[in-house]
């Protein structure tokens, strides 16, 4: 198998509210290989989304280490984390989270634009990836003019446009009907197989999880000992 792209050791995330401490993640040590399609599963409130947020640098663990592609990403500045997210990571959220004032293509090319690429370059990259997700005829539509499934595909295109090292998806099919859900999972599978895209996806649908290479089960903030 390929080299390790994500490694965590004893990762912990505690939320403190007054004197009450809530342990959302405890002692999480995992490894994800480059090119793997991994599903994180568990019951509601088990901590699976919290784990994804730590891995995707959207939140900061309270303890433990996190290494992505050989970089210690815990002890870096906020600016470096922002740059890392822009250049190395891609995100697909449950509720699409597109910018409503931008068209589909603008939503996709905003990040390569921020990476100082030339207009022709970022436009052609966005067109290419939107075509790959089957939206070549909806590029200039605003999110409000697209269906949920189409919006999620724009979101996937946005996540992939910079050719990220890892794509993180947080319950990407939760708001979609079954046909659109299948489309999204098939797209993930396609990118994983064709370009070797590393994907880490949170889902609560076993059927979707089974389409991944591997499932990491989380229970009560811990790796589920019964399913290790």
């Amino acid at each position: 198998m390929e080299r390790t792209i994500i490694r965590t050791e004893n990762l912990e995330r505690v939320y403190i509210s007054g004197v009450v401490k809530t342990y959302a993640l405890v002692d999480i040590s995992i490894e994800i290989k480059e090119g793997e399609f991994v599903a994180i599963m568990g019951k509601s409130g088990s901590g699976k989304s919290t784990l994804l947020h730590q891995l995707g640098l959207l939140d900061k663990p309270t303890k433990g280490s996190l290494n992505i592609d050989g970089h210690d990403v815990i002890n870096i500045s906020e600016k470096e984390r922002t740059r890392f997210r822009l250049n190395e990571l891609g995100y697909v959220f449950q509720s699409y989270n597109l910018i409503p004032e931008l068209t589909a293509i603008e939503n996709v090319y905003i990040t390569p634009m921020a990476r100082n690429m030339k207009k022709e370059e970022y436009e052609s990259m966005a067109e290419e990836v939107l075509t790959a997700v089957g939206l070549e005829d909806r590029m200039h539509h605003y999110p409000s003019e697209l269906s949920g499934g189409q919006q999620q595909r724009v979101s996937i295109a946005r996540a992939l446009v910079n050719k990220p090292k890892i794509l993180f998806a947080d319950e990407p099919t939760a708001n979609l009907d079954s046909a659109s859900s299948e489309d999204v999972i098939n797209l993930f599978r396609k990118f994983n197989q064709e370009i070797g895209q590393t994907i880490v996806m949170v889902t609560h649908e076993l059927e979707e999880g089974e389409k991944a290479d591997r499932i990491i089960w989380v229970k009560d903030g811990l790796l589920d000992p019964e399913k290790l």
Binding site: L58, E78, K79, T82, R83, F84, R85, L86, N87, L89, Y91, F93, N97, L98, I99, P100, E101, I110, T111, A114, R158
Partner: peptide
């Protein structure tokens, strides 16, 4: 929310 999304996808805070 838009500000949060832009930050999440790596757009600099200053921008």
């Amino acid at each position: 929310k838009q500000i949060g999304i832009l930050k999440a996808v790596g757009i600099k805070k200053e921008i």
